[in-house]
Amino acid sequence: MVNISTTRSHKSGFLPRLKKNFIQHRSLYLISIPIVLYFVVFKYIPMFGVVIAFQDYRPGLGILGSKFVGFKYFIDFLTSPNAIRTIRNTIVLNVYNLIFGYTSPIIFALLLNELRLQRYKKVVQTISYMPHFISLVVVCGILKDFTSSYGIFNDLAEFFGYERQNMLSNVDLYRALYVGSGVWKDLGWGSILYLATLSSADPNLYEAATIDGAGRWKQLIHITIPTIMPIATLQLIMKVGSIMSIGAEKTILLYTPLVYEKADIISSFVYRRGLQEMNFSFGAAVGLFNSVINLCLLVAANWSARQMTGESMW
């Protein structure tokens, strides 16, 4: 939007400038045709489907035949006694995830980058990305076993003088276990992009810095971190822009009613509703509600990032 209003204030109009730009860079426009076509056909055409959030959608009647109910399902969700709690839990878990899940791959990549033993570095890298590939059902099974009252986590806790308990049923530990297992699963996987980016740093810069007598800490601050800054900023913007969404699968595998207070999130709530009664519209309405908030946050994050670092998504 900003973009259009500033172009209007220029001497020549938008269209003549576009025409000139087109003539000058014809091949760029040509290249963008298949890309735009893809987005229009496969992303924008199906978007008419959002109307089912405002309908009492019944597959047998189709979108054209189903009854419009306006904001019924949005109100249904927001007035539910569980709405506030699930929204709060979703946001809190995502904020934790932002603090730990976002930073840990960066720190891990930086630590790996400082490693001089090249072969060792490669082995650690390769091992660390393995948990990403193990199915969630199995990972959660392992976690349940470890946190049960006879599990290895309790052996450790007992050694440090704590009493044995079922840790997943402890409402105060649930979030730590949820976020912690996520960090563990995606630490190595998430660091790959940073490692790739670090390899593009100019070795001459490091050489020059060493000659100037800059220590490792200074090199880290002045060369290494600026190299990964654009990608790190981008990742941060994305994470902020998905603060309202977490998939239900992991929660469903880990939670029990005993920890609903901190564990029940929007998607698991919608899932349970789906078990009671098949309803496309309710899910679509909640999804749309989340997307709107996410998009607003994304726009805000993008704007602040541009102000602060000069990096942004658009």
């Binding site: 249904d76 539910s80 609903y260 029940d264 709530f269 349970r272 509703r273 009671q276 009664e277």
Partner: peptide, 12 residues
């Protein structure tokens, strides 16, 4: 639909 909504709220 009503049973679904009530059941979910009560059971949760």
């Amino acid at each position: 639909a009503e049973v679904g909504r009530l059941t979910n709220d009560i059971y949760t």
